[in-house]
Each structure stands twice: as structure tokens, then as C-alpha cells.
Amino acid sequence: MLESVAADTKLIIFELKGKEYAIPVHQVRSIEKMMHITRIPNIAPFVKGVINLRGVVTPIIDLRLRFGLDELEYSDRSRIIIITLNDMDVGLVVDAANDVVDVSEDVFEPSPEAAFGTEVDYINGVAKLEKRLLILVNLEKVFDREVLKNYVRSEG
């Protein structure tokens, strides 16, 4: 379950509705401030649209909406985390991104099912770090195209 996290990994920590989530730093390309997002019609609500990231048209999703949390108006603290996944660049809007930590693999535990419910597949596990609890996000599952397919309208 945690193979992707090598012993002593650097993690990017971001905030979502007061909780701290983590993704491995090697998957992160850059962290951007909010910029103009061009809306894409008739697609899943969590897909906010596309941005011009230095000449590359990059899809952006709102992670709050993807995780089924309530929407928050973007502020100065909001960030877009650009990640590279299977050769495509995609971005996540998060409440704030402000920390990088080194952790060793042994602090990770599989996510307690009771806490997240069984159907949530985009959480890889949790890590206890002193008093903080980091939730490890599975980006492959977050950007699963099958999920997107369900929202798509096929007829005009």
C-alpha cells in the first residue's frame, strides 16, 4: 500500500478544511498562486477548468469538491499544486500549501477504515508526526478518469 513512499520521504503538506494532507514531493512540479481558470462546460463539478501554465494548457481540479467537502471561495492563501502524473500535468486547488516535511516510512499506517469509510479509495494512509496527523493522498485515484466519465454528458 505504501510502496510509493520510500524510507525517509519528503512530503508536501497542504491544508483542506483544517486538516493536513500530504503528497510526495517527487510528484509535485510546482506550487502556483491562484490565476485565471478557464471553465470547461458540462464536466464534473470538481473540474474547475484549465489554466495557461507557461504555455501548457493544464487541467485544474478543486480538491475540496473532489473529496466531497463544501466549496470555499478562493483567497490569497489558496494555492494550485501542479503535479505530474503518468506524463500529464494536472493541478489541484487547495486551501493552503505551506510546509515540506521529511518523514520516515515507519510513521505511516493504513488509514483506519472507520474514519474514512470503506468507499474512499483516494487516501493511501495516515502518518503521525508528533502532534500532527498527515493524510496521505493517492493522486492516481484522485485523477481517475473513470470517475470523470460518470459526469460527462454525451448528448447535445
Binding site: V57, P59, V90
Partner: peptide, 10 residues
Amino acid sequence: LGSYLSYAFA
């Protein structure tokens, strides 16, 4: 739009 958004309608 990239492979992720290949289902975008019209």
C-alpha cells in the same frame, strides 16, 4: 486539453 479531460463535451 490533455488525456484527463478527453471526455469534455463539444
